[in-house]
Design a protein around this nucleic acid. Structure first.
Length: 531
DNA sequence: GCATTTAAACACG
DNA sequence: CGTGTTTAAATGC
């Protein structure tokens, strides 16, 4: 049985019981025939059937007691909470993301307790609980999945606020209402269609991105993927971008997310804007949407962007939780990954494959490969084109964006940008696709710096280290406003850059010229990952 | 009090 | 119907 049933199946569970990931050899997301032999039974089947199985509604107690007798298990299935189980499930996936259904599957397969309950009928309550947990905890983020009409991907948010529930920024009117609602009682609670909160649903009717019609582009493949957009969770929308996507990608490869969380922190510090990753992602998503214009490029871009998104997601997180202090910039591994992705340009397929493919943990692979090394010229071009794309996107965005456009304080960033072009621009312009392009080159530098092991470099690189922005850190929460400004800036910047054109190249070139790959690869994981 | 679990209502596609 | 979000109650620590 090697691993297959292996750990997961371990009948005893008891103390620790780590569901551990399922057989790694098997591709995860894969269709999975339906567990052949081991399916349900093999491993430990469910011995717990005993009475504990039925968790009565209120009576959890019973189950608990039963469970407890074993010693330490808090729940019928062991010590872990649903949230933890879910986290493990996600971690176990090569891509670190699973759909709801896959999470269910994982539970059924990996946790003995749920083994019998997998199928239909009995699956009642626990699935509900899982859904509930996914929604409730900020540590889980939802990523849009266009693929086969499947449901969204669920990933974990690196900084996931363990304790922090969903960010839920000040929801305007909720306070009272919540209480009231309680009073009301559930029965009557029906919510009238729009009425009170038009804004919520609409979130911008114009909505910047159309949801993306469908993508002809990609090949059949399986589910394709990418196109993830983070879900805005509570904050209705915030509109978009936050400008910095900072990246911390970090995947949890080596460590379990939990552990690494602390170390991450997003580098975006410079740009600040605390809140929720989700928003950024959306933005990115938008990019993707827009890109479709050109076939080849689009595909490439998409690939890269996809990657980016993933990375970005990790970058920051809601500060709501208390945890992350956004001020510390560590590093951004993301860049590295980006770089790799970019470099892959030449072979988009591989990229995608990486993303989608189950077997190889993407990150590692990428890291290793990282350097197909494009000739400088090649890079240049790409970056340029990308920029263009970005620019367009930006513009389009702009149009939808707020008219007011007033750059004011934020402007500071741009200025610095001129000074430190590469990094800066990225930070500022982030919301647009251009980011990707920018990043690519940048990544090289960063990577180096990382490699060197001196975060300092990064910091220096970071745009506003000087505290320009720090002062005004958006902690205010009104991201919207903040963002608006940013957008304008970005556009502005981008445009100007484009016009100048030179500036960009100029900056990048030098960077590009530096190959540094071998180093990058190393740098990637080990160096920055604090563990 | 907060965290979890469970249940349920409701919205959406 | 499955997916997601949210509210609520019970319970444990």
């Amino acid at each position: 049985m090697a691993e297959a049933g292996g750990a997961a199946a371990a009948p005893d569970i008891d103390p620790d019981f780590e569901p551990q990931s399922r057989p790694r050899s098997c591709t995860w997301p894969l269709p999975r025939p339906e567990l052949p032999a081991e399916t349900g039974g093999a491993a430990g089947a469910a011995e717990e059937s005993a009475g504990s199985a039925a968790p009565g509604p209120g009576r959890t107690e019973g189950a608990r007691a039963a469970a407890r007798k074993g010693g330490s298990r808090r729940n019928a299935w062991g010590n872990q909470s649903y949230a933890e189980l879910i986290s493990q499930a996600i971690e176990s996936a090569p891509e670190k993301r699973l759909t709801l259904a896959q999470i269910y599957e994982w539970m059924v397969r990996s946790v003995p307790y749920f083994k019998d309950k997998g199928d239909s009928n009995s699956s009642a309550g626990w699935k509900n609980s899982i859904r509930h947990n996914l929604s409730l905890h900020s540590k889980f983020i939802k990523v849009h999945n266009e693929a086969t009409g499947k449901s969204s991907w669920w990933m974990l948010n690196p900084e996931g606020g363990k304790s922090g529930k969903a960010p839920r920024r000040r929801a305007a009117s909720m306070d009272n209402s919540s209480k009231l609602s309680k009073v009301r009682g559930k029965a009557s609670r029906k919510k009238p269609p729009l009425q009170s909160a038009p804004e919520s649903t609409a979130d911008s009717p114009g909505s910047q991105f159309p949801k993306w019609p469908g993508s002809p582009s990609s090949r059949s493949n399986e589910d394709s993927d990418m196109w993830n957009t983070f879900r805005p969770r509570t904050s209705s929308n915030a509109s978009t971008i936050s400008a910095r996507l900072s990246p911390i990608l970090t995947e949890q490869d080596d460590l379990h997310d939990e552990e690494l969380l602390p170390s991450l922190v997003y580098s975006s510090a410079s740009s600040n804007v605390p809140p929720t990753v989700t928003e950024e992602l959306e933005l990115i998503d938008g990019l993707n949407l827009m890109s479709p214009s050109s076939s080849v490029l689009s595909s490439q871009q998409s690939a890269s962007s996809g990657q980016i998104q993933r990375d970005s997601s990790f970058s920051l997180r809601n500060a709501a939780g208390q945890t992350t202090t956004f001020g510390n910039s560590l590093f951004n591994p993301v860049d590295i990954s980006l770089q790799s992705s970019v470099s892959h340009f030449s072979s988009p397929q591989s990229l995608e494959a990486l993303l989608t493919s189950s077997s190889p943990p993407p990150r590692d692979v990428m890291m290793t490969q990282v350097d197909p090394v494009l000739p400088q010229t090649g890079n240049r071009m790409n970056s340029r084109t990308l920029l263009l794309l970005g620019g367009q996107a930006a513009q389009s965005k702009m149009s939808s964006g707020n008219p007011r456009g007033k750059p004011t304080e934020q402007q500071a960033e741009p200025v610095s940008a001129s000074v430190l072009p590469s990094t800066l621009s990225i930070v500022t312009s982030q919301n647009t696709a251009s980011i990707t392009s920018l990043k690519a080159p940048l990544s090289a530098t960063t990577a180096q710096s990382v490699q060197l092991g001196s975060p300092l470099l990064l910091s220096s690189a970071s745009p506003a280290p000087l505290g320009l922005n720090q002062d005004r850190l958006p902690i205010d929460l009104d991201i919207d406003m903040y963002m608006e400004d940013l957008e304008c800036d970005m556009d502005y910047i981008i445009n100007s850059e484009l016009m100048d054109g030179e500036g960009l190249d100029f900056n990048f070139e030098p960077i590009l010229s530096t190959p540094s790959y071998p180093s990058t690869s190393q740098a990637s994981n080990h160096t920055w990952v604090p563990s």
